[in-house]
Amino acid sequence: MSKKELKLAGLIWIIILFIQTFMPAFRINQMVIQPDLILVLVAFVALRYGGDFAIIFAFFNGLIQDFSTQESLLGILALSKSTTAYAFHFVQHYKTIWTRKIKLSSIFIIFIFHNIIYFYFYLSGNFSLFLSGLFVIMIQSIISFLIFLIIERILFKSKLI
């Protein structure tokens, strides 16, 4: 990565962090939904630069997000984000073997998996509450996936995966 690219990446990262911190949440049927831009960023980093860097990047971003959203449950987002980055590592690893459809499906499943981890710990392991939050998980995952698809199409001309 050149110095110019590095500076650009750093700038994008700070902008995304800023947007994520101050982005307003919206409500659907009394459920609070906030698109997770950092999750999308982690997905791009993992698919572009590989697993090792992506896991560390995801961990620190998760930690920052933990500090900025809720300090009482520190570590949830760091865990879910680093796990997501680890899963993306496999998508990147089988980039030349899997078809685009399989890779997209995997990415969508990973987004769902990320939200499941987050909500499980956020709802303190309460299974009944967790079941009622499945709708939110799906909505969050779909939003994140759509953002991922749009950016991938615009910036990478559908050639990243």
Binding site: F59, L74, G75, L79, H89
Partner: peptide
């Protein structure tokens, strides 16, 4: 990749369980 993931996971879990809230 696996080593880094295990390390970050353990660190996250450690951070999470170091909290003293009812959820944890």
């Amino acid at each position: 990749v696996h080593v880094i993931y295990i390390f970050t996971t353990l660190l996250s879990i450690l951070l999470y369980f170091s909290n003293d809230s009812d959820n944890v």
